[in-house]
Amino acid sequence: MSEIIVNAVSKTWGGVGGVDRISFKAEAGTLLVLLGPSGCGKSTTLRLIAGLEEVDSGTITIGGRDVTHLSPAERRISMVFQSYALFPHLNVAENIIFGLKVRGVGRAERDEKLRKVADIVGLSHLLERKPSQLSGGQRQRVALGRAIIAEAAVCLMDEPLSNLDAKLRHEMRTEIRALQQRLGMTMVYVTHDQSEAMTMADRVILMRDGHIEQNGAPHELYNEPASDFAARFIGTPPMNIISWQDGAMLGVRPEHIFVAERNGVPATVRAVEYLGADSIILCDVKGETVSVRQTGYCSLPAGTQVGLEWQNRHIHLFDRDSGKRLADRAPA
């Protein structure tokens, strides 16, 4: 079993940045996403697990083994870097088998594994190329190949798709997810892209300013955000948060609001974004912007007075000061 347990880990650089007493667990064979805006500590967390940074306090265990003070190599992990970190002077094959060579694996075994991995990542025809002769997507595959050839049970990924174009990114995230499940790896995956997190993860940890904002399955983050920050971070467009009574904020997802003729909260249409399958109507409610998702094409002109309605079971209430979620489904 190769679950990862991070227990009360802290790391700062002279009191700046880093992470503050974070704890979580990545179950064996699952994909855990560390999600958050830049500077939230997600990459630091990953580098602490990898052993590229030393913890100030706390412990990290991988597969029941305390690795807190071990070197990266002794942790028996593999890692994919945002820049891919390919060796520019080595060709694809040499890049992939770099680690095997370091560990003195015999030639026959190396060739055998290389053939298998090159086949998995679809690079068999490019083994002689140098990284500079590859496209972004192909480089990404080389980095993946180098990560999986060691057959380490734990694979760490630091924003691996952020240098690819949108179409390729979509393709690769399906592939990485399939690969993770096929090889049964425990994967920790860092990203700032919430749609990547939602589509790939078994579990998402949303981070902010060095602490964990919410830890849950993707549908939990979406349906029961633990704070207004989580509510605003997840979903496109994100949840609408408007001031409400009794020092509370009210949150409701755009798809749960519908436009009524007469009743409901009065609002003014400001603009309509037509997306094809649906339209996002941007409305003004007492100076706050509320977006409404409506199926199909919407022809409301800007300036139209409308009423907005939603059902009570779809609302979320957050404390105005702490931003924390208030008791579920409070009546409005």
Binding site: L52, S71, P72, A85, F87, H89, F98, G99, V102
Partner: peptide, 22 residues
Amino acid sequence: PPELKEAASVEGASRWYFFRRV
């Protein structure tokens, strides 16, 4: 790039090996 060194250290390359091969 410093990531090359990090990538090599994850693979278990010693400092001398990294210097010689990279």
